[in-house]
Nucleic acid binder design. Structure first.
Lengths: 229, 229
DNA sequence: CAGGCTCCAAATGTATACGATTTGATGAGC
DNA sequence: GCTCATCAAATCGTATACATTTGGAGCCTG
């Protein structure tokens, strides 16, 4: 979190992070164009850096780059959306099980704090922050399971999930149903591997079931406005 | 293989492909340094393009880039190696099941051809090509399962697997044990979902069991020699 | 002679300049 | 009035020049 004071040193990662946040909080909607020069002006860096950011986000699946056309916030199809949650369903239950077998009291305390922060964000009606924390909860489970590769991998899937929620979610407030997270923390505390696995499995199935076919298209957004806070 | 004759039109992807092949065939060993200028000379392109390639390979997990230090062929730790195969064990059995339910006669014929090509490569003692085909077989299963996201994902894991084999394999020729692949194709042909899933599970477990703790370090290799064919 | 310091060459990081492609508008022709 | 060719502005792709960092050679010093 050390943000350099020298204004010149805005790194590609920082730009990617801010763009990611804008996407997660729906200030940047799927399909929005990300013109290189515009991003340059906003962050006061050269196109070299901006291009690094955009390519990085493309790898994470948040941005689609079309040669000679430009970069756009990714707009997952319904099939891609299902695939993301199917992939998570393959991975996360096993991670929940492993986490239950490894979780220390410190880990459980950390998750408790995490859930509290999520609830607070919801109470303050900071939906974007709540969404981010809700996704990060799943990543933290994998961290406790001590599986660095899948942690990286799931972070990407979670990032895409936020995008998908923007497009295909039936009822936005459904994500505030934190009973599954509560149950998971309890299972981890009790070293209940089977329980943790089952809860995670059901939780992800719930999420998948709430995907909807409605057309998620909506008007474009000014990039500059989206990044202003 | 095809080194473009028009010196101007070597793309970043082509360079990444050739480097990947050199890594897979162990002509470039884990830890080898990839100096930007050197790669520039070899392919006659600017550093811009080379940097794109190296970053792309970093994302795939084949190359590690250290800031202000340079790019190196990745050298997975034993833990990372195990994680790769654990991740595959979570994903691939389910894909084998899905593939068994969807495989057309054309798909089965394609896999038969694929296995034959692999056997031919082994007969010709083209170990690198055989290794590549053996890995690609797994990716093709996912393609048949019609899961684009996991197909991309597994392709990366398979690429890393080749690296791991270079470092941690107990007996190189073990990969020539193609009976599991044979069994998989049969299961797909017979629409035997349970069988396909079980075979894949066992196959990956076999692979994991053959990882060895021996130190995989070895001397550096000349980059130019590694790319000459 | 060991230790460390300065300075320089080499390699990477970043910005800018130039060229190629796309796009949207304009206007001629049907 | 509509269609299509043409062109200019906008935008992206690539190469190159400049800045920064690193690692080590060589020298000084204790």
């Amino acid at each position: 979190m050390t943000i350099s004071l020298k204004s010149k040193s805005v790194t590609a990662d920082e730009i990617a992070l801010q763009l990611t946040e804008a996407i997660h909080t729906h200030r940047l909607q799927p399909g929005a164009k990300l013109r290189e020069d515009e991003v340059c002006d906003i962050f006061q860096v050269s196109r070299t850096i901006v291009r690094q950011s955009l390519h990085s986000l493309q790898h994470k699946g948040l941005v689609t780059i079309l040669r000679n056309k430009g970069a756009f916030v990714a707009k997952p199809t319904l099939k891609e959306a299902r695939e993301v949650f199917e992939a998570r369903s393959l991975i996360e239950p096993a991670m929940a099980r492993a986490a239950a077998l490894r979780a220390t009291p410190q880990d459980v305390a950390f998750l408790e704090e995490h859930m509290k922060a999520e609830k607070d964000a919801l109470d303050r009606e900071e939906v974007g922050e709540a969404l981010r924390l809700s996704g990060d909860f799943h990543v933290q489970i994998v961290r406790i399971a001590d599986h660095a590769l899948i942690e990286t991998l799931l972070a990407q899937l979670v990032a895409r999930s936020a995008l998908i929620i923007a497009l295909y979610w039936r009822r936005r407030n459904a994500l505030s149903d934190s009973s599954s997270h509560r149950g998971l923390v309890n299972a981890l505390r009790d070293r209940d591997a089977d329980g943790a696995e089952e809860i995670m499995k059901g939780h992800l199935l719930d999420l998948l079931m709430q995907l909807d076919l409605r057309d998620g298209a909506s008007g474009p957004v000014s990039l500059k406005d989206a990044l202003r806070k």
